[in-house]
């Protein structure tokens, strides 16, 4: 396979990953690294570098649409970015000292966890009635446009949410993903944010977190232009096509199929990581 054919294959795979990632809400990043490492034998560090840049592209590209809807809470996003960017430095430092095989195993575990998480129904918690003093001091409470006027919400469990974001940042720096799954979990389950707010705020945060990781990876020489080029262009095109089709309801079947694919990829990453093939 020469460079032209290789780039075409990577582009097609990234296009599909971006499209399905946007449609199902998993994001494209989670399948790019397995695709490149398991499918094409790319070293995991190059794969992580390329994946990171594509994560930034989709997050920034979608920001304009999200902002207009008025759901994202910039204060929550910024406050939690403190945790994710610090986590990122931790994760990227970790990536420099542990082996590729170990990274593959952690990646595999994260994929299995993401697939499991997506199988569970996402239940909206009743919004906190009274204000959490910490959330009030940080002015995290907000409101969003509902069908019948503005809906107010209060934020709970600020320290728990902050700690989970440290983990999300570390994973992002270590694995080159947006780790939106962990971010949404922290905001939904721990902090009790409404879905619309947590999803859009997470999109905002993913780009910032990934940028912190990407800077470090660039300095370390993990970002190869020849490899990142087809990945970024493919994911970007795929994701914008997916987002346009998203207008309706997400297909549950499609989500289930994609979750199964992620589960299989995760198992393979763990196996190959443990046996030293990655």
């Amino acid at each position: 396979m020469n460079v032209l054919e290789f780039s075409a294959v990577v582009f097609a795979g990234s296009l599909a990953a971006g499209f399905l990632g946007a449609l199902t809400g998993f994001g494209g990043g989670v399948v790019i690294v397995p695709l490149l490492t398991l499918g094409l034998g790319v070293d995991i560090r190059y794969a992580i570098g390329a994946s990171l840049v594509s994560v930034i592209a989709t997050s920034s590209g979608a920001a304009a649409a999200y902002v207009k809807e008025g759901f994202s809470n910039i204060r929550i996003g910024m406050f939690l970015e403190l945790a994710t960017t610090i986590g990122t430095l931790l994760g990227a430092a970790l990536a420099g000292v542990i082996s590729g095989g170990a990274i593959a195993v952690i990646f595999g575990l994260f994929l299995v966890y993401s697939a499991w998480l997506s199988g569970r129904p996402r239940r909206e918690r009743a919004a906190g009635e009274k204000a959490d003093p910490m959330a009030a001091a940080l002015k995290l409470d907000g409101h969003y446009p509902g069908p019948a006027g503005w809906v107010d919400y209060h934020v709970r469990a600020v320290p728990t949410g902050f700690s989970l974001m440290l983990v999300a940042g570390t994973l992002s720096g270590l694995l080159g993903i947006g780790s939106g799954a962990v971010k949404v979990l922290a905001m939904d389950l721990a902090m009790g944010l409404p879905f619309k707010v947590s999803t859009t705020t997470s999109n905002f945060m993913i780009g910032v977190t990934a940028a912190a990781s990407a800077g470090l990876y660039l300095n370390r020489g993990y970002i190869d232009p020849g490899l990142a080029m087809p990945v970024v262009l493919g994911v970007l095109l795929g994701a914008s096509a997916g987002a346009r089709r998203l207008a309706g309801a997400k297909s549950r079947t499609l989500r289930l199929v994609f979750a199964s694919v992620i589960l299989v990829l995760g198992a393979q990453m763990i196996y190959k990581g443990v046996t030293g093939q990655l």
Binding site: M1, N2, V3, L4, F6, S7, L40, D43, D224, L227
Partner: peptide, 23 residues
């Protein structure tokens, strides 16, 4: 890049890191 390097054989199997000017 593809026009000039398209027929070369890509090698991403072994990590070497980018040259310093691309870092």
């Amino acid at each position: 890049y593809l026009a000039s390097h398209g027929t070369q054989i890509p090698d991403y199997r072994i990590f070497r890191g980018e040259p310093s000017d691309l870092r």
